[in-house]
Design a protein around this nucleic acid. Structure first.
Length: 509
RNA sequence: GGCCCGUUCGUCUAGGGGUUAGGACGCCAGGUUUUCAUCCUGGUAGCAGCGGUUCGAAUCCGCUACGGGCUACCA
């Protein structure tokens, strides 16, 4: 009986900047797959390119994953027995793999300088061709395939810079069953001799990723579609290294596309259309540029995750709201969509609205409280809870509570001009003054009692409800929207209510 | 240019030989309401095109078109 290996997947970002929401989704799908199968989710930092290192990016990635609830079982910042989990710290481990490839003829030394290769690319371009270091060109270049053993030895000894390239085999069909896409095939004649080991002594992504996945017992590689073209190289690498027996299975996720226009979602789209592209706010350490984040924009992590889960995956049912546990329960690679998905910022907001409505007024009051403090407004939580209960269903974000309820704390400083034009008649002042007088006489100040006295009064005067309600609302709120007016009267109190009505009469003539 | 992947309402998607092609967001209309929003109800709208296989194709195959990705000593 063959025992199934424990599922182990990894999220392997490069710390070159803030984590894109597409990256978060990749992490999410990896996490869901791992948890669904009782496996491990690892975080490995792929920092083999020292030139692209950005300070703070790694900490950002870790914080973002934590905020999203995608906590790794192993990895940088999370412990684990198969570390280090930062590739720069694994540098000494890769050399012997590269050497073994040279030894068995799967790879070779190449001494061509970057300048020489650039020059070649330009020459090819003039002829409208594309230079590729491959079976057609490698025999005419400076490498251990064309140079004598002696020359190679001399160059190596003299410390001349070199890289190690994979020698792509001739005319082999590499066919792989991608767990999302099904059968995908490539012919090696179309593939080039990728650099595996750089002249600075670091492996490239291709070598490091294969070696590390092997050493870390990774069973499934779930990554973005941009990696699909290098899958045959990776498969060949496992084979040449003699470690293909337990090699992982591959799955390539579709990309997240711009809401409008062509191409994949980028930071610019967010700036242009006013939505975040990153989970957390990011300040570029070099330029100082700020990129907004879902967290700082007021999204709940559960809304962000729910939205992301349904972007490129569907449960096959009509359920649309999922907790993380529910996602784990039903997640399935087979239901990942193959085509790229356009991101819809309106739907992200809609998800946030849903999760906000799910919260109790007490919970929301707790979240709103610090926000008010920042504005220098002090109040007590019980009072706040009552207010929140009145305006919660009008909000998508916690910050909307202010937009929808500022008048509970501050008297309006101005009144909507359009509403004045439309609803403030010549006799409105007089009517409001008499209503203020009526309010003076009310001793039991609650919505129900006020409404009763008010109704009686209106009937006596034979005034239409609609004629005075809007002006009063304008006086109290500053605009024509909001919850039940009598509830507002009760909430802001008798003195304040009367004061605001009288003030409006003074200001609006 | 070459290679690879993809294509169902405007958007996210279900559906995998026989369905009135389902849901959600958005949008529109109606209802509720003292206002506005929420909410409720309803509506709008789709199988890229052409060939083939088949009694029958959104579904299988091919071609075309379109979209996307890759094509660095970046990941």
């Amino acid at each position: 009986m063959i025992m199934e290996r424990k599922v182990r997947v990894r999220f392997a970002p490069s710390p070159t900047g803030p984590l894109h929401m597409g990256g978060v989704r990749t992490a999410l799908f990896n996490y869901l797959f791992a948890k669904k199968h009782g496996g491990d989710f690892l975080l490995r930092i792929e920092d083999t390119d020292q030139n692209r290192f950005v300070p703070g990016a790694e900490a950002y990635i870790i914080e973002a994953l934590k905020w999203c609830g995608l906590v790794p079982d192993e990895g940088v910042g999370f412990g684990g027995d198969l570390g280090p989990y930062r590739q720069s710290e694994r540098k000494p481990m890769y050399r012997k793999y590269a050497d073994s490839l040279i030894e068995n003829g799967s790879a070779y030394y190449a001494f061509d300088t970057a300048e020489e290769l650039d020059q070649l690319r330009k020459e090819f371009e003039v002829r409208r061709e594309v230079f590729s270091y491959d079976l057609h060109t490698r025999d005419g270049l400076k490498n251990s395939l064309t140079l004598s053993a002696k020359e190679v030895e001399e160059k190596l000894q003299s410390g001349q810079h070199y890289v190690i390239r994979f020698k792509m085999p001739v005319n082999r069909d590499i066919v792989e069953e991608d767990l999302i896409r099904g059968r995908v095939s490539f012919n090696t004649n179309q593939l080039d001799d990728k650099v595996l080991f750089k002249s600075d002594g670091m492996p490239t992504y291709h070598l490091a990723n294969v070696v590390d996945d092997h050493l870390m017992n990774i069973t499934h590689v779930i990554r973005g579609e941009e990696w699909l073209p290098s899958m045959p190289l990776h498969i060949l690498l496992y084979e040449s290294l003699g470690i293909s027996e337990n090699r992982p299975q591959f799955s390539h996720l579709p990309l997240i596309l711009k809401p409008e226009g062509k191409g994949k979602l980028s930071k610019r789209d967010g700036d242009k259309m006013g939505f975040p592209v990153f989970p957390l706010l990011w300040k570029d350490p070099e330029t100082g540029d700020i990129s907004r984040g879902y967290r700082e924009d007021g999204y709940f992590p559960e809304a962000f995750i729910n939205m992301l889960a349904l972007l490129g995956w569907s449960p096959g049912t009509e359920q649309e709201f999922f907790s993380m546990d529910e996602l784990i329960e039903v997640f399935d690679l087979a239901h990942v969509v193959k085509s790229g998905a356009r991101f819809d910022p309106a739907k992200a907001k809609w998800f946030n609205r849903h999760y906000l409505q799910q919260k109790t007024p007490a919970e929301l009051a707790g979240l709103f409280f610090p926000f008010l403090n920042e504005k220098g407004i002090s109040t007590d939580l019980d009072h706040l809870e009552q207010i929140v209960g009145m305006i919660q269903d009008r909000c998508e974000f916690v910050k909307d509570l202010w937009e929808q309820g500022h008048y509970f704390f501050l008297a309006p400083e101005s009144y909507d001009e359009k509403i004045i034009q439309k609803k403030w008649k010549p006799d409105t002042n007089e009517k409001l003054q008499s209503i203020a007088e009526l309010f003076e006489t009310i001793t039991e100040w609650n919505a129900e009692a006020i409404k009763e006295s008010f109704s009686t009064f209106m009937t006596e005067k034979e005034w239409g409800f609609g004629v005075v309600m809007v002006p009063i609302r304008l006086a109290l709120v500053g605009s024509s929207s909001g919850p039940d007016l009598f509830a507002i009267f009760e909430m802001i109190g008798k003195e304040e209510t009367i004061g605001r009505i009288r003030k409006a009469c003074l200001v609006i003539q």
